[in-house]
């Protein structure tokens, strides 16, 4: 089960976070910010999650996994338990980012700041109640577009749509991905 998905930028400012303690956020950020580029995408548990253990022991009752991926200015973080596949979750983050990239056409941090509703809508298409319900990129994008359409129909405009404007940049699939999916 996925416990939480976080997105924050290089300065630790949250971009997506569902009801998580600020202190935990800070601790995770401290961990993630100090990691070298070559390091793996698994984080040791922050003190708040680790409980009495000073580090993540695998024989704990329910070992928690903390994964992150770093894209440009943003960190995407997933907290899950042992029933999720860690490598699968890394794929999932990739799918998430790809979906955002399609939705915003070359997504950048500003897109996510001004449209965090869409960000939420996207994650909700993929994860419901901690369970991954969809991993198909096209289906996700289609569903989010569908609901965005309903929003526009009701209001006539998309709030703050495309303000960040990364227009003019190269398409994402043609570009070099940081990490190819497995």
């Amino acid at each position: 089960m996925i416990n939480a998905v976080l997105v924050f930028n290089n300065n630790g400012q949250p971009r997506l976070d569902i009801a998580l303690q600020q202190r935990l956020l800070q601790q995770i950020f401290n961990l993630v910010a100090n990691r070298p580029a070559t390091a793996c995408n698994f984080l040791p548990l922050p003190p708040l999650l680790a409980g009495s253990n000073s580090w993540n022991t695998s024989d704990a009752d329910e070992p928690i996994t903390l994964l992150y991926r770093h894209y440009a200015t943003l960190y995407f973080i997933v907290i899950s338990d042992s029933l999720e596949s860690p490598l699968g979750l890394l794929d999932l983050i990739q799918v998430f980012v790809q979906a955002l990239d399609q939705l915003f056409e070359n997504v950048c941090e500003l897109d996510l700041i001004f449209n965090f509703e869409t960000l939420h809508a996207t994650i909700e298409e993929m994860i419901v109640g901690g369970c991954v319900v969809e991993t198909d990129l096209n289906k996700i994008v289609a569903c989010v577009r569908e609901s965005e359409k309903v929003v526009k129909k009701g209001h006539g405009m998309r709030p703050g749509g495309g303000t960040g404007a990364g227009a003019g940049r190269g398409g994402f699939m043609g570009g070099d991905l940081v990490w190819t999916g497995r």
């Binding site: 200015t73 950048c108 941090e109 940049r169 994402f172």
Partner: peptide
């Protein structure tokens, strides 16, 4: 910095 594309770090 913020306009840096997520997919092209």
């Amino acid at each position: 910095d913020m306009q840096e594309e997520v997919m092209h770090p």
